[in-house]
Design a protein around this nucleic acid. Structure first.
Length: 550
RNA sequence: GCGCCGGUAGCUCAGUGGAUAGAGCGUCGGCCUCCGGAGCCGAAGGUCGCAGGUUCGAAUCCUGUCCGGCGCGCCA
């Protein structure tokens, strides 16, 4: 349990005791509000501040200051708490015992490198499906954001103690593969592209790379030329996508093809399931899902009147296929333009008897790519567009990872390539890596001098404000990880990493580690080692390397 | 027209009911006899789009409104 969770528990216990012994009158039928506990902005307000008394004011019908006093009086002894005080208009402020704080360095090192990990009390089996770009063109930066968010989220969930499967869904079933084939063919023969054809330079490259033998076969069977060349081209594109992802350090456990959902009967079974539960109707020759039964504004076609299943049909089959594999939660990381399909998929899941809350779509807002103030078009069909490889070449993997995982995925962002390049060396990611390298360097020098970290007396020796502040930050790590996992967000992780690096820099400035005082030096070395460990840990959550020197 | 997501410092973004709204970059001014200067310290910079409402308290919740992005197909 994180320190924050322990303190909340202590406050809750105090509140409950006060109710039990009659000092606090709260009707038994009201639901108690959650206890807020946060770090106050001003140091004189203590290390932690709770609004518990103000939250209870309406239900207890007592002045908040008085409630705060009562809870403070009932607070059981917790080894971490040195002092509880109350402040207007009703805050309960806690100050931690500096010796206890400093004494935590040892326990952190004892469990390192797994400190802060696997703290969830409700481990789930979670499927995270992300990227899932169609195999009709290289990845572009719009995909990049989802790739990094999905990757980091997967790392965070796994670190928090969940079982995570990373999944990539290949849409290989519709007409777009044929469209790709026809586009390549058109480029090959320098004829006009089909309507809605693909325009990118990669199409021309594919046309040039196409084996003569394939071109010959396509010419012999003109009716099948599109699918023939399309499959070949799609494989090439897919290989490129996988190579790009590998370069990003983004890996997947499962590559799922849409066609397999049909081949293995998942779509058919799902439709049957909906039909048997009365959520299907046949109108105008098509098969419809009664999405309106669940609040949607219209019903949705599953099978067209021409007998062809829609994309939505695959989605439904996929839901059953995933749950059949035993997942307790499905996370979809989609582009924000897909938000219109969220409701219908969740509705269908509910109709088939699944918990709709277990089907979660994270909609990633779009990235506007600009260069020198001008927007770069993003469509694969519109000619020039930015590929993932372009970004990596210009900005670098670590900086790109940091950039994309440090923004809330709901926020649309502008990415100026020239600015990103210019700021390459000032990117905060290097600041965090630098702190890790510096810590490693100190440990290296100490080791050469025969000095080893020793946390046994840290509680007594590490009393300097900078030391205290640094340990406080280390103690925040389990909670930072737990919060990110709980909220299914990533951007709090870089924030925490930066703050920890800042605290370490301040410590480095104020407290010389290697001195003639062996006891103090050993204790400070232990703190450096613990910091290095957590920095490495948090960088690992981001998929960013933790260099020993740079 | 309806729906979803945004609007916070010059720029890029945090802040999902608490105390004087924060960070990075940029700007200005300081700091290298010292374990890594990819660093540190300080300063300037804000009607939190706007208007009402809810309450002890609102950037945060509700209503309305303006601006921007996206979606509303028997496309994917």
């Amino acid at each position: 349990m994180s320190l924050r969770a322990e303190l909340i528990r202590a406050i809750a216990d105090a509140r409950d005791r006060a109710v039990t012994d009659g000092s606090l009158a709260i009707p038994s039928d009201v639901e108690l509000p959650a206890i807020g506990l946060e770090k106050p902005a001003k140091p004189e307000h203590g290390d932690w501040a709770s609004n518990v008394a103000m939250q209870l004011t309406p239900v207890a019908r007592t002045a908040p200051m008085r409630i705060a006093q009562i809870i403070s009086d009932h607070l059981d002894h917790h080894p971490a708490i040195a002092e509880a005080s109350i402040a207007a208009p009703g805050f309960l402020n806690l100050r931690l015992d500096p010796r206890w704080v400093a004494g935590q360095v040892g326990p952190i090192l004892d469990v390192e490198p797994s400190y802060g990990r696997e703290t969830t009390t409700h481990p789930r089996s979670i499927n995270v499906e992300f990227v899932s770009a169609n195999p009709t063109g290289p990845l572009h930066v719009g995909n990049a954001r989802g790739a990094f968010v999905g990757d980091v989220l997967s790392r965070v969930l796994a670190a928090a103690g969940h079982q995570v499967t990373r999944e990539y869904y290949f849409n290989d079933f519709g007409a777009q593969v044929i469209n790709l084939g026809l586009s390549v063919l058109a480029r090959r023969h320098s004829t006009d592209l089909p309507e809605d054809g693909y325009h990118g330079a990669y199409v021309e490259e594919l046309a040039a790379e196409m084996p003569d033998e394939l071109a010959l076969r396509a010419a012999e069977t003109p009716d099948d030329a599109g699918i023939l060349i399309g499959r070949w081209a799609s494989e090439r594109v897919r290989a490129g996508i996988e190579a790009s992802l590998a370069r990003l350090g983004v890996t997947f456990d499962v590559w799922k093809e849409e066609s397999s959902l049909h081949d293995e009967g998942w779509v058919e079974r799902a439709v049957t399931r909906l039909r048997e539960s009365g959520h299907i109707h046949e109108t105008d020759g098509a098969t419809w899902f009664r999405s309106t039964d669940f609040g949607d504004d219209k019903d949705r076609v599953i099978v067209r009147s021409n007998g062809q299943p829609t994309y939505f049909a695959s989605d439904i089959g996929y839901v059953t296929e995933k749950f059949d594999r035993g997942f307790s939660e499905l996370i979809y990381i989609w582009g924000a333009d897909h938000h219109g399909t969220v409701a219908r998929v969740r509705n269908a899941a509910q109709a088939m008897g699944y918990d709709r809350e277990a089907v979660r779509m994270l909609l990633i807002a779009w990235v506007r790519f600009v260069r020198d103030g001008a927007e770069i078009p993003m469509s694969k069909r519109s000619g020039e567009f930015i590929t993932l490889d372009d970004v990596l070449n210009e900005v670098g993997v670590d900086a790109a990872r940091w950039f994309f995982s440090s923004r809330a995925y709901t926020t649309g962002i502008d990415f100026d390539l020239e600015l990103a390049k210019k700021q390459g060396n000032e990117n905060p990611v290097y600041y965090v890596q630098y702190a890790h390298a510096r810590a490693s360097s100190i440990l290296r020098i100490a080791a050469d001098a025969g000095l080893a970290p020793d946390a046994s007396s840290a509680g007594e020796l590490l009393s300097h404000p900078a030391e205290q502040a640094l340990v406080h930050h280390l103690l925040d790590f389990p909670d930072a990880l737990a919060q990110a996992a709980e909220r299914r967000e990533t951007h709090e992780v870089p924030r925490y990493a930066y703050e920890l690096a800042t605290a370490f820099s301040a410590f480095y400035r104020d407290c010389k580690v290697l001195t003639d005082d062996v006891a103090l030096s050993s204790a400070r070395l232990a703190l450096v080692d613990a910091t290095r460990s957590v920095l490495a840990n948090v960088l690992d959550l981001l998929g960013i390397s933790a260099p020993d020197s740079m």
